[in-house]
């Protein structure tokens, strides 16, 4: 049987917008008026999502939260397996994390390994008072005991499918797709 080449749109642009707004209000509800809350996005899409969440929260609370960027490459558990190491980009956390409340932000939560790496990276910068996790899509199949505190969309997938998140900042439009293993992209 040929591999599934199909694609399904999980969220379109307005779906992404609504999901982010919902997540932002949940964060604001749980941390009312907490200006020392900070959002740290995991490269690459996590950065854009963190900035959008900060903007939404600002709209609700009137508070501009600090944001940072984390590159988890150096903390991954799957490098050095006979293929070239992924390129490393900068980590930028322009504030002390000691005793701060931090929300890690990523686009997709899958096995949980990226989150684990991001937690390790974050701990190397200090000792936060609290760390929570916000993801746009939770697609299941966890391999580690990790769960998200804020989820834009929960979707059940099979392991060989892929979730593709496109953000306006990088690709011109917001979109979340679920595609089969044989999907070759769009021409």
């Amino acid at each position: 049987m040929p591999p599934d080449t199909g694609k399904r749109v999980l969220l379109d642009a307005s779906g992404v917008r609504r999901a982010l707004r919902r997540m932002a209000s949940q964060i604001a509800e749980r941390h009312p008026g907490e200006g020392d809350l900070a959002l740290v996005g995991i490269r690459t899409n996590g950065i854009y999502i963190a900035q959008r969440l900060a903007k939404e929260i600002e709209a609700i609370e009137g508070l501009r939260l600090e944001t940072g960027i984390i590159d988890v490459t150096l903390y991954r558990d799957d490098i050095s397996r006979g293929r070239p190491h992924p390129l490393v980009k900068r980590t930028e956390i322009p504030f002390p994390v000691d005793d701060r409340k931090i929300i890690l932000v990523d686009d997709v939560l899958f096995t949980g390994r990226t989150t684990r790496a991001a937690l390790d990276a974050l701990m190397d910068f200090g000792r936060p008072a609290l760390v929570e996790l916000a993801v746009l899509v939770d697609r299941g199949h966890r391999e580690l005991p990790i769960r998200a505190d804020y989820v834009g969309l929960e979707v059940s997938t099979s392991r060989d499918e892929s979730v593709i998140v496109r953000m306006e900042e990088a690709e011109g439009a917001d979109e979340v797709l679920l595609v089969g293993p044989g999907w070759k992209g769009e021409s």
């Binding site: 150096l74 903390y75 490393v88 900068r90 390790d120």
Partner: peptide
């Protein structure tokens, strides 16, 4: 190297890579 430069400015100047 540009990306790695930041590590040397941290308090904990070490990554597990």
């Amino acid at each position: 190297a540009d990306s790695f430069k930041e590590i040397s400015t941290r308090d904990i100047k070490k990554v597990p890579t």
